[in-house]
């Protein structure tokens, strides 16, 4: 039989190692920050969109490319059939102006979708439970192509081609813009 003292020491080491491993998983692998452990230092805001595209629960909410929160739930408003997105924002960012804009963006051309926040200039700030009024829906490829075809076939042929070029240019510009935003993040 192993000596009692040795057993006690080893079990102590064992439990300690287990605790360290769990801590490592929580803090280095997972996304727990020490501040989050002590009370919910977060607040909720909502935003309505015509179309959220492929946005999913837990998607990041970013401000100037920095993650400040995440999407906590998504549902449809039964009154006007628009998508309601609930976001949980860290309390460190409790000074978002009320005229802030929420935009659904895509990381990369075909990447995950997330919400970008663009602060406005008001003096009053969003509080827990408030709604962001200004929103911009997801960029849905099919709709873009539809718009383009409609405007292309709209009037005379020559006009159509130049409009096509213009739309295409805007599309590419917009994709680049998002790509550079992603780079900044």
């Amino acid at each position: 039989m192993v000596d009692r003292r040795v057993v006690e020491i080893w079990v102590g080491v064992f439990v300690l190692l287990g605790g360290l491993a769990l801590a490592m998983l929580a803090f280095m692998v997972g996304n727990v920050r020490v501040t989050e452990l002590f009370g919910a230092q977060e607040y909720q805001i909502t935003a309505q969109f015509d179309n959220i595209g492929g946005l999913k629960v837990k998607a990041p909410v970013t401000l100037a490319g920095v993650r400040i929160g995440r999407v906590s739930s998504i549902y449809v408003d039964q009154q006007d059939f628009r998508a309601v997105v609930e976001m949980t924002i860290s309390n460190s960012y409790n000074n978002l102006p009320t005229d802030t804009t929420a935009i659904i963006l895509t990381s990369g051309v075909l990447g995950e979708q997330y919400i970008g926040i663009e602060p406005g200039g008001e003096e009053t700030f969003l509080k827990n439970g408030d709604q962001i009024i200004l929103t911009q829906s997801a960029l849905v490829l099919e709709n873009l192509i539809g718009q383009f075809l409609y405007s292309a076939g709209g009037d005379g042929d020559t006009d159509g081609i130049s409009k096509l070029a213009g739309t295409l240019e805007r599309l590419i510009e917009r994709l680049f813009e998002e790509e550079s935003k992603k780079g900044a993040k």
Partner: peptide
């Protein structure tokens, strides 16, 4: 659970 946490870590 301790062993599994150590394994993952």
């Amino acid at each position: 659970p301790i062993l599994a946490a150590l394994f993952s870590a």
